[in-house]
Simulated scan of single mutants.
Amino acid sequence: MDIDAYLDRLGVGRPAAPDLATLRHLQERHLAAVPFENLSIHLGEPVVLDEEALFAKIVGRRRGGFCYELNGLFAALLRALGHDATLHAAQVFHADGTLGPPLDHAAIVVSLDSENWLVDVGFGRFARHPLSLSAVDGQPDPDGEFLVLDAPHGDFDVLLDGKPQYRLERRPRPLADFVPMAWWQTTSPESPFTRSLTCSRPTSQGRVTLAGDKLIETVDGVRNEVPLPTPEAIHAAYRVYFGMALTRLPVPPGGSPLTHGAPQPDTALT
């Protein structure tokens, strides 16, 4: 891995030591610089879960990705910088409180100073800072208060403002374990990613999301939605808000690039 090129993508210099302050800064910068997006599915591009392919996409082409891609590559960067970082599978909670399938999500656990920290740059709206997996009280974060609870079989339930987000496995997994579920997520008509088109990242005051032909900005809790009437306007939004120069626009489900087929902007997506 070209560590310096990856750090340049995040807008940071090479850190002096693999400590908690460094981990926190890298997570903040990754979330701000690398969008959560599922454009590859709607551009007809393959999603390849190996570090070389992910580096070429996220660093070389300055794109984003979804959980397996973003956390898969970020974990590799953290290891290259001296962190003890492992990938862990999670099951995402549905709105009705039921759990999704195993390996529905991939997150990172970093072992640092005899404590384990949850790091996640691939879940849409989620913690901007590392979360202690041993803390018994709520952990305040710019995006809300997070609580980590013990779950069956030694797993962890992660809650945001009292609402369950996902159940995290204790045991680590290699990136290759996520390949079958990533294939399902990118091909099944039942997958939320094949049924929607989104590109999103947090900002200093909230979040910005490009959902099909609608640009949605949330600033200090106030949501503003602006329709984008032309392909040129959509291209400009990808470039200005996400730093992405696309050669062609993704086609959302059942329509042209000007068809809005995406979910609401501030929903946490895997």
Rank of each mutant, 00 (worst) to 15 (best):
E225V: 15
P174Y: 03
T203M: 14
G100C: 06
D96N: 01
T86A: 13
K163S: 07
D8N: 15
E190D: 15
P180Q: 01
R79Q: 04
P174E: 06
P18C: 01
F66Q: 04
A268Q: 13
I41E: 07
S200C: 09
V222R: 15
A236G: 09
D266Y: 01
T203K: 15
W117P: 09
N116A: 13
T270Q: 08
F93P: 05
P164V: 04
L73V: 11
H42S: 11
S191K: 08
N38H: 06
T198R: 02
Q27I: 08
V148L: 10
K163L: 06
P140F: 06
A135Y: 06
V34R: 09
F74A: 03
P231I: 01
G144V: 02
S132W: 04
T203L: 01
N116W: 01
G72Y: 00
T267A: 15
A32D: 12
Q185K: 14
R125S: 08
Q91H: 08
L149W: 05
L210H: 03
P192K: 00
N38I: 02
Q91M: 11
T259W: 01
R248L: 13
S111M: 00
G44H: 08
V119T: 13
F36P: 10
R173E: 14
D161H: 12
D120K: 01
D177L: 03
L70D: 04
D177A: 15
G206Q: 03
A245M: 15
P192L: 02
T209C: 09
M244V: 12
E169S: 03
A107Q: 06
T22R: 09
V109E: 02
P257N: 04
W117G: 05
